[in-house]
Every structure is written in C-alpha cells, then in structure tokens.
C-alpha cells in the first residue's frame, strides 16, 4: 500500500478507536441513567432513591394481582425472581398486562417501600409463536414446574 494511504488509514483507525473509547467511557459512567428502570433487586438493595420519580421493571409475580372491585386500583408485585417490590396503580392497564408478563412502572417509592405508580407499560420478550404452540408449551411446562421457572427467568 502507498505510504501516504497507509498514514491516512492509521489516522482513520486512531480516530475511530479514540471516539470508541470516549463514547464507551461516557456510556459506562452514565449507565445508571441510561437504564430505563430499576430491577426489584436494586430497589431491595436500596439503590433506588425514595420520593423521586423513577421506573421499576420486572415480571408481574404470579398470583399477586389484586384488583379493587369498586375502583380501577390494582396492586401487584414486580419480581426479577430474586427480590420483589409491591406496586400500587390506579388507572387502565395495557392489554398485554398479565401475571407472568413483563412490566415497566413509572412512579415513586414511598417510605414503606411501596411503589406508587402513575403509569404502567407492558414489556414483552422477543419470542413470537402461534397461540396453539403457546398452548401446548404451557401444557408440557405445567407437567414440569421446575423447568417452567427456569425458562421464565431465562426469557426475562
């Protein structure tokens, strides 16, 4: 290769490496701000601030959803299969909201450790399948409850 082109190529590579390192360090330093939500484990460990608007995300714990019969108020627990956080929300839930599904809630953590949400969004995973396949998967999984739990935490 011509020496002048070699020189230009070196400059270009240095430019790329420099920008890469700079952006890498910046995003690493800001990682907590780039994260959209806190995990229940982080909240349990006291990493999330109280009385500040934050987001909490995880799976809706099975059997934890309690709906108020008269109002739109609903309580449920959000879990990452290590810790869980109780959430209170008043309003219309997204269609995809269900036990065992992912959610991201926006709101404040009160002094008692309850998460008071004013917005709940549904989070889904990258697995798509026809209803019949989901049905038969569910049947086989119900036969082996241990495998089911493992698969769930993996997909989350």
């Amino acid at each position: 290769m011509h020496p002048i082109r070699k020189k230009r190529l070196t400059i270009v590579l240095f430019l790329l490496a420099g920008i890469g390192v700079a952006v890498g360090l910046t995003t690493y330093a800001l990682r907590q701000n780039i994260n959209l939500f806190y995990d229940p484990s982080q909240i349990a460990a006291g990493e999330a601030p109280h009385d500040v608007r934050i987001r909490a995300g995880g799976m809706v714990e099975k059997g934890s959803v309690v709906r108020d019969p008269d109002t739109l108020k609903v309580r449920f627990r959000v879990t990452d299969f290590q810790s869980s956080v109780p959430v209170e929300y008043t309003g219309i839930l997204p269609d995809l909201f269900a036990e065992g599904q992912g959610v991201v809630a926006m709101g404040k953590l009160d002094a008692g450790g309850n998460f008071v949400a004013d917005q709940v969004l549904a989070k889904h995973d990258e697995n798509y399948m026809p209803p019949e396949v989901a049905e038969s998967l569910k049947k086989t999984a119900d036969g082996q409850p241990v495998a089911n739990g493992a698969a769930q935490s993996a997909s989350y």
């Binding site: 990682r31 994260n35 806190y38 991201v104 969004l121 990258e126």
Partner: peptide, 8 residues
Amino acid sequence: WWNTLHQP
C-alpha cells in the same frame, strides 16, 4: 447492555 422497554 441496559434495561430497556424494547425487547432483544
């Protein structure tokens, strides 16, 4: 790398 609402 981060927690996002978008799925993988």
